[in-house]
């Protein structure tokens, strides 16, 4: 397995009226053909990581450092035509609100065709043909007649399918999915998750799937990275993390899920609220809410420890006694 995406020591800071240190040292790799789940709560930096990867963050108000390499291209150095080629052909993205991501004044078919023509320089007829193909790929019923439909004429689930069709129309190697099922009803959400799983295999692409819902992450991911306070606090194979979470935050998150809790028994909770991130965390950002916090957690950043093959945890406790030496 070779890494398609290599993010190392990524820092993203938003400046303006108020400074927010959204990403504070993210290291992440995405391998060919895998689906990586990025799990976290609001403000944890999961969406910002995706947007940085596609260079969607507002230039004037964002300070980015570190490196993002996709297929050996330096993404942070891309500009102009190279950036346009990168978006859509190499990496493509789907969003939570297809109604906002799609253009309301063009039909679904013409939006897909335009994208194909722009990237592949083919004829309108060939692009139209591809648009029809793509609507079939995402299993939109009576695809031919839906080509002429405008986004508002489609139901929520169909709009999301149309957006997936648009995102995949130039056969990208990497698909970024930013909570694409969060706004959907339960019976529709599962359809879209199954569709993405099938398409991932069919197209052999790699996927980064951002979600706040553990259930959704379990349904879609091969590997999981858990984010907190702009850092990845734990990553590894999905099964290992769900079975035996090692970071106290992941343990708390899995424990506070009402899924398995018997009625009448109190839910385990993580006290307090996520950090505000108006400064770079100089210690463990989770220390204030951690059930097993120690003195050193408030004094210095915890090390990233490889507790098993490919299984990383950012915690002193995982490092054992000689943690300070490792750091």
């Amino acid at each position: 397995m070779s890494a398609l995406v290599e993010i190392s020591d990524l820092h993203v800071r938003f400046v303006g009226e108020r400074t927010v240190h959204a990403i504070n040292g993210v290291d992440l790799t995405l391998n060919a053909g895998e689906t990586l789940g990025l799990l976290g709560e609001s403000g944890s930096g999961k969406s910002v990581t995706l947007r940085a990867l596609l260079r969607l963050l507002p230039k004037r108000r964002t300070v980015i450092s570190g490196s993002i390499r996709v297929l050996d291209q330096d993404v942070l150095a891309l500009d102009g035509e190279a950036l346009s080629r990168f978006r859509g052909r190499t990496v493509s993205m789907i969003f939570q609100e297809p109604a906002l991501a799609l253009d309301p004044v063009y039909s679904i078919g013409s939006q897909i065709a335009e994208t194909v023509m722009r990237h592949e320089g083919c004829s309108r007829a060939a692009a139209d043909q591809r648009a029809l193909e793509m609507l079939n790929v995402v299993r939109i019923p009576s695809a031919k007649s839906r080509l002429a439909a405008y986004p508002h004429e489609l139901s929520g689930g169909m709009r999301q399918r149309a957006m997936i069709a648009l995102a995949l129309s130039c056969k990208p190697k990497i698909l970024l999915a930013d909570e694409p099922t969060t706004a959907l009803d339960a019976t529709v959400q599962i359809q879209i998750l199954l569709l993405l799983r099938e398409l991932q295999r069919e197209f052999g692409m790699s996927v980064i799937f951002v979600t706040h819902d553990i259930g959704v992450a379990v349904e879609i991911s091969d590997r999981l990275a858990v984010m907190y306070g702009g850092q990845i606090v734990e990553q590894g194979a999905l099964r290992d993390i769900i079975r035996a979470p090692s970071h106290p935050y992941t343990r708390g998150l899995l424990g506070s899920n009402a899924h398995a809790a018997p009625k009448g028994q109190r839910l385990e909770t993580i006290p307090g609220a996520p950090p505000v991130l108006d400064a770079v965390p100089r210690a463990c950002p989770f220390a204030a809410r951690c059930a097993v916090v120690e003195q050193r957690c408030n004094l210095q950043p915890p090390p990233v420890v490889e507790i098993a093959d490919g299984r990383l945890t950012r915690c002193f406790l995982a490092a054992g006694q000689d943690a300070s030496a490792m750091n």
Partner: peptide, 25 residues
């Protein structure tokens, strides 16, 4: 029954294999 089986699984070894319903509400 469809609503119940549309709930995402929390067990990596027992993922949902087929969608209980087609289409939107």
């Amino acid at each position: 029954r469809a609503l119940l089986s549309a709930m995402p699984s929390i067990d990596p070894d027992r993922r949902t294999q087929t969608a209980p319903l087609a289409g939107d509400p």
